[in-house]
Design a protein around this nucleic acid. Structure first.
Lengths: 229, 229
DNA sequence: CAGATTTTTGACCATTTGGAAAAATGTTAT
DNA sequence: ATAACATTTTTCCAAATGGTCAAAAATCTG
């Protein structure tokens, strides 16, 4: 009998879809294993993003994944084992757009397209955004290390880029880190607080909310960051 | 024996600290009742804001309030009965600053001080902000009516004020509702995502984060909204 | 097809959780 | 002091929940 659900110890593994390349021949997972795990993660994303970690139950996830609880537990031994890969995967997806902000480009277009990308992510991947928001709200117990490590480093790096642009007079001089925060906040708002946004806009104006937001944010940031004269 | 915990039906009552005025003589609550209920709400704010509704247990709240679970349930019959008053109270506190934005004043200073007030609230009442964020994140099941009613009306009203300012050429023409969203998003970010903000800024820069944020946001919005020429 | 292995199921368990009842203890006005 | 009421504690319960385990079913391999 196999060691029932190895989703625990390896920490990373199977998280990032293994990239391309031949199916590792020895010690590999079954096709079924890969597929089922993927289905479970999909379902879990739904559930966790809507209810938070503590507010979600294994039963809910199992049902959403169309399998029985014991069956699900065959693939992931513990609730945490389902949550962790989701968070880790998400964090990387989340950081990609900032990573792409190119120091050799022109600041205003770069920032503008960073905002656009972020807003698109809020529109297309609201569950991921909410999963993240839930985690942070509850004190980020499971990812505090990543925040203080990878995330901080990335922000530090990009803050330097922004500062250089300011030195060159291509950008109004502001606190670069808070500038990044404000982009995160304004864009993610449309995923995390979508219910509120829709409620306030009312049915008639809700449909175009992402386009309207894009237009507005572009105006605000471009106008707010472009040096006068 | 009294009707064990009347915290249920009246819906509002005891929520808003009853305002000033003599202790209502008939059908009034005991001094102890008022005090204990207040203690419980205090404790519950701690717990709910940190774990969300589903993630919080009555036991946790009872312990935080320094009493036994049955004792707590004597004051509030059900978990929801503790949560609802908190949310309602908060929503009103939360809207006050926007309410104060004065249509007869000058736009830039008005917006500036709105931002300042909102940021102070994020600094001084982070629990309330997180309680709210938690609720919205999970789809706002318990306050959707308030959002579509009171909140929408308030925003509609203030959007008109902003539009008038734009008509008068005192403000760059942007979508007024999204302008409001962006102020909410950027200010509440410092309460809801505080862990992340601190992680990214690192120990050295975390202390001044609210002052730095205030400076930055003021710059961004004033610069971004003041008409050129 | 037979044997080995993987996957699924059903029955089960210990804890946690929301909540009810009733008895015991306090408090207060007369 | 005592009756009437308010508060607290003790005990208890049913449902929900995270998780286990052995046996059955399905799948894969030669």
């Amino acid at each position: 009998m196999k060691e029932r659900g190895n989703g625990t110890e390896p920490d990373r593994a199977l998280v990032t879809a293994e990239g391309a390349g031949g199916a590792s021949p020895d010690r590999g997972e079954t096709r079924i294993q890969r597929e089922k795990r993927e289905i479970i993660l999909e379902a879990a994303l739904d559930v966790f993003s809507a209810n938070g970690f503590r507010g979600s139950t294994i039963d809910q996830i199992a049902e959403a994944a169309g399998m029985s609880k014991p069956n699900l537990l065959y693939y992931f031994n513990r609730k945490e084992d389902i949550h962790k890969p989701l968070i880790e995967r998400l964090l990387h997806t989340w950081l990609a757009p900032l990573e792409e902000m190119d120091g050799s480009g022109d600041p205003i277009p770069e920032i503008r397209s960073y905002i656009r990308r972020k807003l698109e992510m809020a529109r297309d991947y609201p569950r991921e955004s909410r999963l993240f928001a839930n985690e942070i709200l509850q004190g980020a117990p499971r990812i505090i290390d990543l925040l203080e490590g990878e995330l901080k480093e990335l922000v530090d790096r990009k803050a330097k880029v922004l500062e250089r642009w300011m030195d060159e007079g291509k950008l109004v001089r502001v606190d670069p880190r808070h500038l990044i925060f404000s982009i995160w906040a304004t864009t993610q708002h449309y995923a995390d607080f979508d219910v509120q946004v829709k409620a306030v806009l009312g049915k008639q104006y809700s449909d175009g909310r992402f386009e309207d937001a894009a237009r507005y944010l572009e105006q605000l940031f471009v106008h707010g960051l472009k040096p006068k004269g």
